[in-house]
Design a protein around this nucleic acid. Structure first.
Lengths: 138, 138
DNA sequence: CGAGTGAATCGTAATGATTCCTGTTTCAGG
DNA sequence: CCTGAAACAGGAATCATTACGATTCACTCG
């Protein structure tokens, strides 16, 4: 997702355009991988030393709710990345060394829900972990 | 997995037979679902009020390492359940209401790794969330 | 069977991520 | 430019999890 698309969504929902939101989105648009709140904070402190975790988490949650960011739990910590393909269902390979991701378009759900009659499926999680070609080379 | 199988593994690896480990395994063998450390602690306090979290987590981690328990992160918290089919790769449907699980034998990995040449796959996570037939009925 | 040894445990303190609270600042609209 | 609502800063609180020194326990061997 581009910065413009993100801001279009935010303004449509009446969210204000603030410096902090700009900086956060900027950071995500430059980093094509899952990031933690701490990484975001470290980046933001460069030009806003007093930034608070409250601000970070509030905005990350907002962005996640609006579908601007994708969110996942890795080792019990929340991680966020720019929504890579809005509206298109997909999964990720996640590099455990550098954090970079690769989209996986195949989703196993259709094949499986057939075998779950009477079950009410609400969601699912499918992620593949390993080393990307670049990190394998090292 | 049965209690006997679990103890066979533990004794093979020279782990001592303690009251706490007995109680923990007992609890898991009676509850066919993912449990938190807190749930385990609450159960154990009935006959051991002074039980410490250190003991709980240490043993849960040990059991998980030995393949006696299966472990997963749900909403950022560690959850454990008795290994249901040792040695046989499978996934789970997890009921978000009662926590009960149902094994899913189908695994989408073969189909996908083909499309990840040069990637080094270390692991994957596939879980389905929703309501089981019993909880749907309510 | 009873002492010795290292594993296991207890009790509590520390940690790290996340959330909450309160007063202050900033944004957008009139 | 003024104003109310949204957003923010700073710090305290919470929750799960881990760490640690002191103590107890399970098993071994004499």
């Amino acid at each position: 997702m581009t910065l413009d698309e993100a801001w279009r969504i935010l303004q449509e929902k009446q969210f204000k355009r603030t410096k902090n939101r700009d900086t956060i989105l900027q950071f995500f648009s430059e980093n094509d991988r899952y990031l933690t709140a701490l990484e975001v904070k470290n980046f933001m402190e460069e030009d806003n030393p007093g930034i608070s975790f409250d601000t970070i988490y509030r905005n990350l949650s907002t962005f996640s709710d609006l579908g601007i960011l994708e969110e996942t739990d890795l080792n019990g910590d929340r991680h966020f990345r720019m929504q890579c393909d809005p509206g298109v269902h997909h999964h990720h390979f996640i590099c455990t060394a550098c954090g970079k991701t690769r989209s996986i378009s195949h989703c196993p759900m259709e094949m499986i829900t057939v075998n779950l009659p009477d079950y009410e499926v609400e969601g699912h999680k499918f992620e593949i972990y390993g080393k990307c070609p670049l990190c394998v080379a090292k």
